[in-house]
Each structure stands twice: as structure tokens, then as C-alpha cells.
Design a protein around this nucleic acid. Structure first.
Length: 493
RNA sequence: GCCGCGUUCGUCUAGGGGUCCAGGACGCCGCCCUUUCACGGCGGUAGCACGGGUUCAAAUCCCGUACGCGGUACCA
């Protein structure tokens, strides 16, 4: 049977970076085996539904380079792909479970359940739950007379359907990442399968869908491991062969704990995929980084594109422990992929960025030189415009830190240099000459290179760092350079 | 609390009984290159959570402890 996996997010917000990695591992696994990558929208919680979330998920996956083989917008033969559109199916299967004695109706109100919990807590039970013991004293089809149950159902009284968890049983299953995992049913509660609003809970929906959609491998976050035994119980109750399980380690925040939205933001880590899109990160970098966050091919390689990752990826090489998100390493990947991208490919992107910043980008030839000069220096494409802003307009102010290098003798040296260079024709105004003129000047004044270099850089670019200065001067042209020096001399003295 | 899952440099990881006084990458530090900023090159720093076993031999197997994380909902 060919591999079919699903990424099954709930549309309660924008696609989280952890979700993106789960999707990636599913995708890589599917493609490694020539299988199918399914997107299923788990929208069974109507109270948390977010309108634009589904589109955001689809856009994010596409940006990251994952092709959805089957999903709500490109259905295959196992649709629909939104759980809200499969309601009848869940009802049918829930009913089947009741008939086979694996589930039952429960009529308790929220208040009654709360009271039960209070009562048990008061009598010394630290974690009361609706289970094989407590269900005997609750209002459900196991305790109520048959005719009363039927009457309640006919009256349209609110009810839920609960899983009848066996009293004492051991549920064991093999997880591809963790090996054999084992749970005692005594610790499980009678999970709600159908909610009183007629929607299934995740537990029922996920089992029914994975089975009816022919999913062969369930690859999901570790937060699901604890409820996996309930799912196994369900597969058993239906008499279905469960899919192979693989529970992924969580992505952790640098300060510890699951990388939550709140934590990530306070630690300067973009948490939603859309933040990376808006922030102009290289998708290849994010993907490469994410792939290695909890997985490695086992050799010393670090750089792989999606195609290579598909070839290399296996679940047995996924690590078990949580992985801390290392933003600096992400940036290292980002720098790497920018350097790998040709100037020609970068050009239109930088052009758009610069224009959005309100700069006149002059002609493409000019821009090509700008991009070339900054290519090895930027960490993220935005920096082409930030670091290179002086290519488009004269510095409005001078960087404070850089200004410390503007010493008492700076004005004199810059003036001396200016006088030399002023004599050059436009054609002579090129990097090598500009450099030799600087050498001449420092020799005449018997000072070090930096004594003139830094002030000159500040005067022309406003910054204490940046691309090769002489090439920059050449590109800017004589007239512009002269004018900037004059302004600086006047303002800095 | 209970249940489950984890634990190799600061971080991501390699390693699955001898070839490991533990390898790679990010970061950090230093040197070289560049009389500028970077890129790059070279080198350095730093780790098997702890305690017991098993074994001729344990980072690797077993048990316990500690710590971390997850779950404990009519949320997913």
C-alpha cells in the first residue's frame, strides 16, 4: 500500500512554526516514499474558528515549497477535507460504537460534571475524571433505564457520546520514533466523542478520518502522545487496523517550554509562518533549518534543499528530545541561501524592496552593482536596502557609533583627500585610482589607513561599516561623492 | 498529584558495548586574508545529568534518582 500522510491543523490562527515543521516532516516522509501528502482542516471547534486561518495555512505551505496533493481546495477521492463537512460520517460511526457497546450517551450538564469533580476532590481524589468508576453514578445510558434514555433522545435533550474506556487494560503500540509505548486504561477518562453541539471531538474525527482517508502514517507532535491510547482504543472498537504512529519532539523556546506564541515573541523569534513571509526570509533557509531541528541525516552535511531532504529523510533518524529554536542558526542558513542566489535572481526582489522604501532605484545596471557589492554582507534581503540606503540617497544623519571615529584630524584629512580626487575626471573616478589617492594622502600626512578611511566612509555613507568603499565611491560617481563630502565637512567640522 | 515521554558541548546534532581521553554545525574567541566592512581559510573554547548494576570493556544495555517537557477539557 502506498504511503498516505496528512497534515491536520485546526484553523484557530495563523500557521505556527511548529506546525510548519510537522507539515514538513509529513511532506518529506511522503515524498521519500513516493506517497501522498494530504491537508485536512480540523475545524470541529466552532468557538475557536478563525476566518482566514485556512487560507493562511495553504499559503504558508505553498511558500515553503510543499505541494498539497489532496486538500480542501484540490480534493482527491477521499473528501471532503474539512471536518465540519463530514459531520454525518461521525454521527454514523459514533452510533455504531454505541451499538457495539463501546460508547454511550451521557446527559450530564457541565454543572453536574463540575459538581462531581468538586465532590471527588473534597474526598481526596486529586484528579477526578469521568471514568469507569464515576460513570456509574452519572446520568448516562449505562445507568439510566432504557426508556428514559430514549425519551431524552426523542425530547432533544442535550447529550454527548462518550467512549467507554475498559476498566483495566494495557494499551500498547509501536511508535516509529519512540519504540513501544504503553498505557494503562485506568488512567484514561471516558473521552467525549460527540459534543453536544453535534460536532465530533478531535479524538473521534481524527480516527474516523485517518481510517476513511486511508492514512498509513500518523506523524504529529508529541502533545498527542498522551491521547494516542484513546485513539488505539477507538481503532480497536471499530475493528480497524490503526495507522503507524510517529510522535515528533516539540520545538522548545530558548527559555524552556513549548515554543508558544507569547514566549517566542518575547524572545524575538517570529512564530507564525506568515511573519517569515512578510519578513522576507528565504523559504529554503527556513525549511533547511526546520528539517534539522529534531532530525539529521547522520552525516556531517548541513545544507540541503527540499529535493535532497526528501531523499534523505527517514523517521528513524528523528530525535526524541525537544529541540530549542536557535534563531542565529536560522540566520546562518538565511545568509547561506542569499549567497547561493545569483545577483540576477536577487535583482527584482531588491528592486521591489527599494521601491517600497521610497527609493529611486535608477537603472538596473546600477542596482546590479549595488546587489553585487552587498551580496556577501547581508543576512536577510531587507538589508540590501537598509545597509545600502546610501546608494539611493545621501545620508540624512550619521551613525552615532561610527561618529566616534570622527576625530579632530578627520576633517583635515578628508579635505586633503577631496582636493586630490576633485582633480580627477569623471572617467578617472574609479576604485583603483580612488584607493591610490587615499594611499597618497595618508603617506603625505603620515597617518594610518583607518585615520582617513573611516571618516571618509562616514561622510559618504553615514555608516561605520558597509561594502567596499572605493567601489561604492565609483558607483556613486564624482559629483555625488564631492557633494556628500562637502555636507559632512560642514556638519561635522 | 497522577500518567506518559525525554536527558551527549550554551544551542542543533553524530554516535547503538571496544576503533570515542566523544565527531560535525551554529555561537563565541583567536589568527590569516583584506592597510576598510564582510565573505572565506585555519585554529581554539566547551559536553556523555547523577548513582548503582551487567560486562574483560558502557556515552552506548538494565535499574533507580534528579531534572525537563507533554498530557490530565463538550481545545486541538
Amino acid at each position: 500500500m502506498s504511503v498516505r500522510v496528512r497534515f491536520a491543523p485546526s484553523p484557530t490562527g495563523f500557521l505556527h512554526i511548529g506546525g510548519l515543521r510537522t507539515a514538513l516532516y509529513n511532506y518529506l516522509f511522503a515524498k521519500h516514499h513516493g506517497g501522498t501528502f494530504v491537508l485536512r482542516i480540523e475545524d470541529t471547534d466552532q468557538s475557536r474558528y478563525v476566518e482566514d486561518a485556512e487560507q493562511d495555512i495553504i499559503d504558508s505551505l505553498e511558500w515553503a515549497g510543499m505541494t498539497i496533493d489532496e486538500g480542501p481546495t484540490n480534493p482527491g477521492e477521499f473528501g471532503p477535507y474539512r471536518q465540519s463537512e463530514r459531520k454525518e460520517m461521525y454521527h454514523k460511526y459514533a452510533k455504531q460504537l454505541i451499538e457495539s457497546g463501546h460508547a454511550y450517551y451521557a446527559f450530564d450538564t457541565t454543572e453536574e460534571i463540575d459538581q462531581m469533580r468538586e465532590r471527588l476532590k473534597a474526598s481526596g481524589n486529586p484528579s477526578p475524571s469521568y471514568d469507569s468508576i464515576t460513570r456509574q453514578s452519572m446520568k448516562n445510558s449505562l445507568t439510566l433505564p432504557q426508556d428514559e434514555v430514549e425519551k431524552k433522545l426523542e425530547n432533544g435533550d442535550e447529550y454527548v457520546i462518550r467512549l467507554k474506556v475498559p476498566r483495566r487494560e494495557t494499551v500498547k503500540f509501536e511508535d516509529l520514533i519512540r519504540g513501544v509505548v504503553s498505557f494503562e486504561t485506568a488512567g484514561l477518562d471516558d473521552q467525549v466523542l460527540m459534543k453536544s453541539d453535534g460536532m465530533p471531538t478531535y479524538h473521534l474525527a481524527n480516527v474516523v478520518d485517518d481510517h476513511t482517508m486511508n492514512i498509513t502514517h500518523v506523524i504529529r507532535g508529541e502533545e498527542w502522545l498522551s491521547s494516542a491510547p484513546k485513539h488505539m482504543l477507538l481503532y480497536n472498537a471499530f475493528g480497524w487496523e490503526p495507522p503507524t504512529m510517529a510522535h515528533l519532539p516539540l520545538i522548545m523556546s530558548p527559555s524552556g517550554g513549548k515554543l508558544s506564541k507569547r514566549k517566542a515573541e518575547s524572545e524575538g523569534i517570529p512564530v507564525n509562518t506568515k511573519d517569515y513571509i512578510a519578513g522576507n526570509y528565504e523559504p529554503e533557509a527556513l525549511i533547511n533549518f526546520l528539517a534539522y531541528l529534531g532530525w539529521s541525516p547522520g552525516d556531517d552535511s548541513e545544507i540541503h534543499d527540499m529535493k535532497e531532504l526528501c531523499e534523505l529523510f527517514t523517521l528513524d533518524r528523528v530525535s526524541k528530545g525537544g529541540a530549542v529554536f536557535n534563531y542565529k542558526k536560522l540566520m546562518w542558513y538565511n545568509e547561506h541561501y542569499i549567497r547561493e542566489t545569483s545577483v540576477a535572481d536577487l535583482l527584482p526582489r531588491v528592486k521591489e524592496l527599494a521601491e517600497n522604501a521610497g527609493f529611486d532605484t535608477k537603472d538596473d545596471e546600477y542596482l546590479v552593482t549595488v546587489v553585487g557589492l552587498l551580496h556577501e554582507r547581508v543576512s536577510i534581503v531587507d538589508e540590501f536596502v537598509e545597509m545600502g540606503s546610501f546608494f539611493f540617497e545621501a545620508p540624512k544623519e550619521y551613525d552615532e557609533k561610527a561618529l566616534k571615529k570622527w576625530k579632530d584630524d578627520s576633517a583635515g584629512l578628508v579635505t586633503a583627500y577631496k582636493e586630490k580626487v576633485e582633480a580627477l575626471s569623471d572617467a578617472e573616478f574609479e576604485a583603483a585610482t580612488l584607493k591610490s589617492k587615499l594611499e597618497e594622502t595618508i603617506e603625505e600626512h603620515e597617518v594610518g589607513f583607518g585615520k582617513l578611511m573611516m571618516p571618509l566612509r562616514i561622510a559618504v555613507t553615514g555608516q561605520g561599516f558597509g561594502p567596499d568603499l572605493f567601489a561604492s565611491l565609483e558607483l556613486l560617481g564624482k559629483e555625488e561623492v564631492m557633494s556628500r563630502i562637502d555636507v559632512a565637512l560642514e556638519r561635522l567640522g
